[in-house]
Amino acid sequence: MAQIDYFFATLSPYCYLAEQRLEEVAAKHGATINYKPFDLIRAFGRTGGTPPKDRHISRIEYRAQELPRQAKKLGLPFNLQPAHWPTNGAPAAYAFIAAQNAGGGDLGKLAHAIFRAVWAEEKDIAEDAVVRACLSEAGFDPELANSGLLEGAETYARNLEDAVEAGVFGAPFYIIDGQRFWGQDRIADVDAYLAGDL
């Protein structure tokens, strides 16, 4: 059975655009997903990337065109300038890790609920009530928002190290058998790889 290491950032608009298509592809091929939330901004500093606010104007302008285009293509509601971005994405990541450890819900649905809260619902994922609502929506105990914070912080930091070591430089990023796929627009390639066509 194939395993997909899925590196994602709770504040990434491109992770939001990925929806749950990775989960659908994994289910189609009987693959498992190893969810690895990580600090993308810190990864940028270690892998040659530039945070959005520090990018050249040409890149900023392109991002402003490309994100709404992709959202429209996918039929997703999208706010290019959400009320609570940037914010502290760590609390949501810690809660995700607690849910991952506890089990009992749908991790793909939880990840998408977090992304959607930022990019479509004008919610602040640094707020406890927002994180709790995302947990509940995905079938997890909302109390997980306040449990395992130390373990969550340690795992979050370890995921960053794993990402840098594995050659991850953006999000969403998928690794299968050492093959790396970057971006929401590479899920079809993940599908083809798992099918043995790539």
Rank of each mutant, 00 (worst) to 15 (best):
Y6W: 10
Y6C: 11
T10Q: 10
T10E: 03
T10M: 13
P13Y: 08
C15S: 09
C15L: 03
C15Y: 05
C15E: 02
Y16C: 02
L17D: 01
Q20M: 15
L22C: 04
L22D: 04
E23P: 11
E23S: 14
E24L: 11
E24W: 07
E24H: 05
E24K: 10
V25F: 01
A26D: 05
A27G: 08
K28T: 03
A31I: 09
A31Q: 03
A31T: 01
T32P: 00
I33S: 01
I33Y: 02
N34P: 09
D39C: 06
R42V: 11
R42Y: 09
A43E: 05
R46C: 05
R46D: 04
G49W: 12
T50S: 14
T50C: 14
P51K: 04
P51T: 11
K53L: 12
H56A: 15
I57T: 12
I57D: 12
R59F: 13
I60W: 08
E61P: 01
E61R: 13
Y62H: 08
Y62A: 09
R63I: 15
A64L: 10
A64Q: 12
Q65T: 08
P68Q: 00
P68M: 00
R69V: 00
A71S: 06
F78G: 02
L80Y: 09
Q81G: 07
H84I: 09
W85E: 11
W85V: 15
T87Y: 15
T87R: 13
A90D: 03
P91T: 02
P91N: 06
A92F: 04
A92R: 02
A92M: 02
A93I: 02
A93P: 07
A93Y: 01
Y94K: 05
Y94V: 09
Y94E: 04
F96Q: 04
I97N: 07
A99H: 13
A99Y: 06
A99W: 06
Q100E: 12
G104V: 03
G105Q: 13
D106K: 07
G108I: 08
K109E: 07
L110P: 07
L110I: 10
L110E: 09
A113T: 00
A113M: 03
R116F: 10
V118T: 14
W119M: 08
W119S: 04
A120Q: 00
E121M: 05
E122H: 08
D124C: 12
I125G: 01
V131Y: 00
V131M: 01
R132C: 08
R132S: 07
A133Y: 06
S136Q: 15
E137T: 14
E137D: 12
F140P: 14
F140C: 15
D141L: 14
P142Q: 06
E143G: 14
E143Y: 07
E143A: 15
A145E: 02
N146G: 15
L149R: 09
E151R: 06
A153G: 12
T155H: 03
A157F: 04
N159D: 02
N159C: 02
E161V: 11
D162Y: 08
A163L: 07
V164E: 04
A166C: 10
A166Q: 07
V168D: 08
G170N: 08
G170Y: 01
G170W: 01
A171G: 05
A171M: 05
P172Q: 06
I175V: 15
F181W: 00
F181D: 00
G183Y: 07
G183Q: 02
D185M: 06
A188N: 14
D191E: 09
L194D: 05
L194Q: 05
L198Q: 09
